[in-house]
Amino acid sequence: MRAFTEEQKIKILEDLVAIKSVNENEIEVATYLKKLFEEHGIEATIVPVTATRVNLVAEIGSGSPVLGISGHMDVVSPGDVSKWSTDPFVLTEKDGKLYGRGANDMKSGLAALAIAMIDIKENDSLQKGSIRFMATTGEEVGGAGAKKLYEEGYMNDVNTLIVAEPSQDVIVYSHKGSLNFKVTSKGKEAHSALPQLGYNAIDPLAEFITKVNAEVRDSNRSNEILGELVMNCTIIHGGQQVNSIPELATAEFNVRTIPEYDTEEVIEKFKQFAEELNNEGADIIVEVTMSLPSVFTDGKSNLVKTAQLLGEKYFNDKPELIGSPGVTDGSNLLRSKGDDFPFIMFGPGLTKMAHKVDEYVHRDVYLKFIDLYEELFLEFNK
């Protein structure tokens, strides 16, 4: 017996897409899901993160084992709406595809998790243990929601974690971390004809960039699954006009880390290079604006094997097992878990469709994932 008809399942996704949770406003998504759960006898708790942002936690069953299922409630901006062929906040079906901002990344995954859990509750089919639903805020920028759940102990007793990011054709069991830096170099303004009266803020910043490129980006360390660390200086600002010595220059970096060269070591390197240049007369400040560690698991768990078999059952093709260069909320949720922890990222939609104009999820994929999740959840709570 199913708690929802196909059309009701589509309506839930339609309602979620209509909520403009663009890097904010997750409260409305959380309130909607809380009401949905409570209509089916499932207690749900809104967990404040900031004055305007929240997580949502709901749970069925009791005791161990505890299966964690997670998805984020925020979406990225639709950008130039005139480039969309449909209204990005109105779920629109065309040729078997459901279009809308977040339809792919990742409100279809979030809805599929919730519906599968409600079905299990309605049918009283959970034989033992618990399923903990964790909807997060701010995943697209910084991961504050998942960090809050980790800090408040919601992952302490979790034995298995499924993150429903769009990845219908692959199962991700490890992924790189992500670090953002803002590096500020302070100088002293002067006329460019009299540079000795000032201090050019660009010069030490350029030297800093050269140092980190040589010693961090060009490292030969690698991971068997994730490959090498990736680092890019992506934004540079400096100076006001061409005939003035600049008193301020900034550079921003994004680093995709691996366990062999993870976030703490990279942060220490950045600070070390700044200190070396400061000892030579520079005034460089390193600010870490985001820090998400890499996630490495060995991929040998029954979770991975079962998800692969179910992927083949529902989609007639066994999903490939991969490590990903992107990050998920797993970076925060799994901070204290070991390499043998059962973790996957597996959900409706395609990774390549994330953040794009005319984002969509296939209708049949969304609906099949609800059934797939129900089987998968119950397999680990027998």
Rank of each mutant, 00 (worst) to 15 (best):
A354N: 12
L367W: 02
T328Y: 03
V365N: 12
D371A: 14
F341E: 08
E280T: 06
G326W: 12
P342L: 03
D364C: 01
L367E: 09
N278A: 06
A282F: 07
E359C: 06
A282I: 08
G349F: 08
K352V: 09
T328C: 03
L321A: 05
P325H: 08
K368R: 09
T289P: 00
S301M: 10
P293V: 13
G338C: 03
L350Q: 07
G349Y: 08
L303G: 02
R363T: 15
A354F: 02
T297E: 07
T289D: 04
P348L: 08
P342C: 06
Y314Q: 05
N332S: 13
F341H: 10
F343W: 07
V288E: 13
K271V: 07
Y360K: 08
V295R: 01
D298T: 13
V286P: 07
K300W: 04
E320I: 05
E280S: 09
F343K: 05
T306P: 00
Y366V: 11
M353W: 11
G338I: 09
F343I: 11
H355L: 04
T306E: 15
D298M: 12
R335D: 00
Y360E: 08
M345K: 12
S294C: 15
D371S: 15
G323L: 07
V365Q: 11
V365A: 15
L350D: 04
D340F: 03
I284R: 01
Y314A: 13
A307S: 11
Q272I: 06
P293M: 11
E275G: 02
E275S: 14
I284K: 03
D364A: 01
Y366L: 04
V365K: 05
P319V: 11
Q272Y: 13
D364G: 00
G338H: 09
M290D: 08
H362N: 13
G323T: 04
D364L: 00
F273N: 01
G299L: 05
G338Q: 14
T297K: 00
R363K: 15
P348F: 07
F296V: 11
D371E: 15
K356D: 10
K368Q: 10
P319N: 05
L333V: 14
D340L: 01
D329A: 02
E312L: 04
T351V: 14
D358N: 15
H355R: 01
F315Q: 05
D283M: 04
D339T: 14
D283W: 00
I322C: 03
G281F: 05
V327G: 12
F273H: 09
L321H: 02
S294A: 15
F273D: 00
V327I: 14
G323P: 00
S301H: 10
T289M: 03
L350Y: 10
P348Q: 07
K318M: 13
N332Y: 14
L310E: 07
E280G: 12
E312T: 07
